[in-house]
Design a protein around this nucleic acid. Structure first.
Lengths: 193, 193
DNA sequence: CCTTTTTTGTAACACTTGTTATTTTACACG
DNA sequence: CGTGTAAAATAACAAGTGTTACAAAAAAGG
């Protein structure tokens, strides 16, 4: 009875997401998405109420993408935080723009806990693993490890980090062992929410 | 013989810099700078060839601002990296937008060394101080300390870091001592250029 | 006071943006 | 084979951008 849909909202979101992946949210316009999708701007606004709406969708897609990346990341090290750390740093290196969007943008839409695969379960597991290895203050350990991991990830954004995965893994383990030995504890209040 | 200048290029740059300090470079337009400076857009383009030119000036001003901030930062701790670390982290917390512009933006115009007060002198001093305290691999020590410091700074950008200066200082010292004890060394190649 | 010269203000241009009105197109049912 | 209907294309609008042509203003020397 009516014309068949040729540009689905899925296709629009796919296109916008790929662009965001390559160049960030900054220069994504309705016309450029349309051009890349091979259509006019009309199908975009049929699927999404506004560009802001589409950008929200891109953000959600990026969050899901990170969660998949994390879930599928190969287990490289045996010590606590090795998997979380390596996945996080690799994500920053391989998906700079998505990492920026999710973890350093000015208006964070989701907290770290939300982004780490449906809550704090993974984080809790790492903390318990550290405790099992005799860490006197697992909370402080997590705080410090996380700051370090975040630092390496953010450093890769500006091209100031060029260690290989192997070197990174070795460094993370070395840092973890350093922290494990340290008796002094940081304040009880964790900076990571 | 001619009309007296009422809006100097200095005034224009001051205005644009203050705006960048508050909200970043993103939404700075000729008309908004003019409005805030209390003039039309004309004096802006008399002083600067283009908006890009003005933004370059803002960046240079931000770099100088950071160097002053660093130079004048009170000496809070005695251990190596305490001054550099505390100044860097405080700068990130107190001047989020400037920190973003200088240290996490996609197109870094100046390297870290250039930004750290005219070269690597301060960094070298920290490394030598660490060596004097018996650090077996001062280069690796610097790499790890710097990653940690950068991590804390970047974490404060998203509101995920809320330790006080005192707590931060204690944590930095604790981390430094952890690294000092660690015998294992990271790869010889430093990620920080 | 008048003229010259430079600075400033006004207004415009060309372009890009999100968004929407309107026309065209293509499908599926009668 | 029309014909109604939803989708897509076209083209427009309003707002905002950098930038510039041009007119108004102000200072200083004659």
């Amino acid at each position: 009875m009516a014309r068949k849909e040729s540009i689905s909202s899925r296709m629009v979101l796919d296109t916008a997401f790929e662009m965001a992946r390559e160049e960030g949210l900054k220069n994504i316009t309705a016309r450029r998405v349309a051009e890349r999708a091979g259509c006019s701007t009309q199908p975009i606004f049929r699927s999404f109420q506004s560009m802001e709406d589409l950008m929200d969708g891109v953000y959600e897609r990026a969050a899901a993408f990170f969660q998949d990346f994390y879930a599928l990341y190969p287990k490289l090290g045996e010590f606590p935080f090795s998997n979380l750390g390596m996945a996080y740093i690799s994500f920053a290196r391989e998906e700079r723009e998505l990492f920026r969007m999710l973890f350093v943008s000015a208006e964070p839409k989701k907290s770290l806990y939300e982004l780490l695969n449906g809550g704090a379960e993974n984080v809790k597991a790492e903390i318990q693993a550290a405790a099992a290895q005799g860490c006197p203050d697992p909370g402080a350990m997590f705080t410090k490890m996380w700051i370090f991991i975040h630092g390496a990830a953010c450093m890769s954004l500006t091209g100031d980090y060029d260690l290989s995965d192997q070197e990174t893994l070795k460094m993370l383990e070395s840092v973890y062992r350093s922290f494990l030995r340290e008796r002094e504890s940081v304040s009880a209040q964790s900076p990571v929410r």
